[in-house]
Nucleic acid binder design. Structure first.
Lengths: 236, 236
DNA sequence: CAATTAGTGCCAAATTTTGGCACTAATTCA
DNA sequence: TGAATTAGTGCCAAAATTTGGCACTAATTG
């Protein structure tokens, strides 16, 4: 394998694994420890910030905020691609996600590191995680993407979700509900929840929810109501 | 000078001069004619479209449409990016979709057109369209993506959808319904429909639907039932 | 202290790149 | 038509680069 490809692979591997030892990387890319060390050196010359730690439990680590390269796309364009690829990767089960990542890694390397840092930070804030299969960020509309992590935790950990809700009349109420499902009535998204204080199901427009947070102490159960094939709608 | 740098210089030079002979380029980058020919060959492999013309007054020329990018991505990588961007574009209402598209267009232009044609064709077959805001292909699970176009048309054109449905007991029935919404009860997706023959709402698991097709003659209206903020769930 | 891990310097072997050469094919122009 | 020009290919040996192995140092952990 040529040095360039190998170095690309190393970057991807490091990005994925977080921390790795030189020996492990060497085995992974099928090269000697010495060669990997040289590659790391080359990557550093290109501007990658790679932290290292000797001793047991040590290894090297790619500074997530550092990136560099050769492609000539505008920052905005790279940003857009970042979002695309991240959302696909978040979906998880597509075989091409890895390739898209590799392609994107090449592009990312072309940008000044401070701009990439800004992009990455914004992307983290924008949040595309395991929730994606349930909620597509592209469709969040007016909702602030920064609020999504709370939704993810609530769904995955089955924790109560607390938020402020502004109804159609503009009245704001505080809610604490069990998030049960997402209902999509294009173009709007609704959070379908069991409201224990009202002892009833309620539907909330996603873009009218503010300041959501999880209530870690309380865990709820899925209300698996039955449809005609075994599952029913959760509305009464 | 290493091959990579030299090739970058060649691209820049061609971009500046428009047309140049191999011999002139060789002199400019300080390499032999043979080497420059090899570099040109490599650049073409990487996707640069380079026209050539033998004879007096001839020379080589970068395809003006490939002038826009220097990103060096493999065909497979571009393919993966295509899928990412297409799925995002399909989502429709993101401000970045256009940018991602533009960025990708630059990359595409660097590829030989026949390869792009193949990719595009495959992508069309894979299908990622306007339905995506309602159905994320990554989450279709057991459902055949090839069936999706019928869903899209039905939703967008408000046509009746006809399909075979296999219920929990394995019984197969023929249905003809008004698709009203998608309901996501992770990890399953349901099609929420008004069934006119039963005069009632019915929920269908997406992965149990087979052979869907639109009924073009009949158009239905959205059954905009009200939630507590103005829209209610469409289930009874 | 022993074990572990990053990192360096050096050298010979392995691999890749290069230049030169002879050649073909296409095009221009007189 | 023929001479000149220019892209492009195949081949080979020389040149350059990359690689792996080795012995080493430095830092860290327990």
């Amino acid at each position: 394998m040529n040095p360039r490809q190998r170095q690309d692979r190393l970057v991807r591997s490091l990005r994925r694994s977080g921390t790795a030892t030189i020996a492990a990387l060497a085995q992974e890319v099928g090269a000697s420890r010495r060669t990997v060390l040289r590659d790391i050196c080359a990557l550093r010359d290109e501007g990658f910030v790679i932290h290292s730690e000797p001793g047991p439990g040590g290894g090297i680590q790619l500074d997530p905020q550092s990136l560099q390269t050769t492609a000539r796309l505008s920052v905005a364009e790279v940003f857009a691609l970042l979002i695309s690829v991240a959302s696909m990767r978040a979906a998880g089960n597509l075989p091409f996600a890895g390739l898209a990542d590799a392609g994107l890694a090449k592009i990312e390397k072309a940008l000044p590191s401070d701009k990439i840092r800004d992009l990455r930070r914004f992307l983290d804030c924008l949040y595309i995680g395991p929730l994606a299969p349930q909620v597509n960020i592209a469709d969040m509309g007016a909702m602030d993407p920064a609020l999504l992590p709370a939704f993810e935790t609530a769904f995955l950990e089955r924790q109560y979700l607390r938020f402020q809700y502004r109804d159609a009349k503009g009245a704001v109420t505080q809610r604490e509900v069990e998030p049960q499902a997402m209902l999509i009535l294009p173009p709007l998204w609704y959070l379908v929840s069991w409201d224990p204080t009202r002892n009833d199901f309620r539907h909330f427009r996603m873009d009218r929810i503010a300041d959501p947070s999880c209530v870690a102490e309380r865990v709820f159960r899925r209300r698996h109501v039955q449809f005609d094939d075994g599952v029913r709608p959760i509305t009464k």
